[in-house]
Design a protein around this nucleic acid. Sequence first.
DNA 1: AAGGTAACCTGACTGC
DNA 2: TGCAGTCAGGTTACCT
Length: 283
Amino acid sequence: MPELPEVEVTRQGIAPHLQGRVIDGVTIRNGALRWPVPRHLSAKLTGAVVQTIGRRGKFILIGCEGAVGAGTLIIHLGMTGTLRIVRPDAPVGVHDHVDIHLGATRLRFNDPRRFGAILWHAADDPVPLLASSHLRSLGVEPFSPAFAGEAGGRLLFQKTRGRLVSVKQMLLSGQIVVGVGNIYASESLFRARINPKNAAGRLGLVRYQRLAEEIRQVLQAAIVKGGSTLRDFVGSDGQRGYFQLDYFVYDRAQMPCRVCQTPVRMLRQGQRSTFYCPKCQRC
DNA sequence: AAGGTAACCTGACTGC
DNA sequence: TGCAGTCAGGTTACCT
């Protein structure tokens, strides 16, 4: 579910409920996520004050300062994770795995498939947060200066020279630019009129300038609409996203292209579905 | 280093 | 109704 827009909508939604608040407990009902939830998490967080609510790629980073020591709570939503602000007496669902208690509210992590993660990075760790194992190999942020304007296209162009992998899989890897998942990869390539099967190394600078622009635009437009809700994504207040209504190609196999009426095609690339219009994205 | 595949897990849907 | 098979928004581990 959650690509950058859904993660950012979540981050923006939870931030005002956490900022400056004191954590007074942690409930772990099922710690068997993508990686085990650290058993000492409650000890690290209880009594801590939330200082920052940031994001790196699809990871939410909650900076805390406590008596026991400062650090960062790293949260990833995986495929089906959600973070919601609930009252302490809210009924507990089957997949409500972790609660962070903040007085009269709780931050509740729900994740049916348990591909998500909740980790802790201590501020006194010799390895800096952004150099830690899950964050160190991420590409640039799509809304950072490094991907703004001409720099974005230039970066995609330079980093893909000699690469045989398809442009779709290059986007999905997150090694050059982060946040583009399976939906927004298909959508940004459609908007840039680029065929997803193209080898990344064979596309020219001009086409990458267009692609970078469309990536920025489609991610921004999706954030404005609250993300995409296909099955289970909800924001921190339980609100659904509406960007799925604006899809040009994703999950529209056989249906007419919204620009030229040609039936949209689906193909498999690295075990993931890709959707594209064979006419609008001829090359 | 780059490329390909399998794995983690639950739920929804399809077809027999 | 039931059961097997397939697919789903992500990421890492482990092979060539």
